[in-house]
Every structure is written in C-alpha cells, then in structure tokens.
C-alpha cells in the first residue's frame, strides 16, 4: 500500500436505539479523512446518524483454525435456553 494510506472499517448507526452495523471499509490517511470519506461513501442518502471508523489493523479476530474449539463451549449448555424448563401452561406466559 502507498505509504500512509490505511484501510478503515466503517460502522453505521441508522437510528438512535439501533446497534452499529458494519458497512464495509474505506481508505484514509488519518482519522478525520477516514470519517469524511466514510460519510461520502456510505451515507449519501440518510443511511446514518452516527459513524465509527476503526483502523482495520486494530481489529482482533479469532484465528480460523481455532474457531471450532473457541466457540465449542456454547454448544453443550442447553440449560441456558428457556425451552430447557417445563412450566405448566396454567401459570400463564413466562
């Protein structure tokens, strides 16, 4: 990459109360330019009321070959789900 040019990941919040959502990425040399480029690229039609940009190199992810083991503990705890418990119909919605 050309010196100083960086890739930033872009997150947009469409309305207050909604979570930020990943929109894609953008190039920029500094924070301010990354924000302005993200605005021009991703929010030309009122798609957002808030915008985050994060340098792509700062994102931490689970290595692909560890992913199975990493998420495995979530699979065998069925008692974390409401359907694990038997509650009589007569007590109403719970």
């Amino acid at each position: 990459m050309e010196s100083g040019d960086k890739v930033w990941e872009v997150f947009i919040q469409k309305k207050a109360g909604l979570p930020f959502k990943h929109a894609g990425s953008v190039h920029g040399y500094d924070k301010k330019m990354a924000l302005q480029n993200a605005r021009d690229l991703y929010t030309r039609r009122g798609e957002g009321r808030e915008l985050w940009v994060v340098e792509a190199s700062n994102i931490v992810a689970v290595p692909l070959d560890e992913a199975d083991a990493f998420f495995d503990p979530a699979d065998d705890k069925i008692y974390r789900h409401p359907t694990f418990y038997n509650i009589p119909d007569s007590v109403g919605h719970m």
Partner: peptide
Amino acid sequence: VREAAAAYALKTE
C-alpha cells in the same frame, strides 16, 4: 495530494 496527506497524518497522528 497523497504525499501531502501522508505527511500531514504523520505530523498530526
């Protein structure tokens, strides 16, 4: 423009 942006970023960030 790219060179100026890189120099500016280096200075400010």
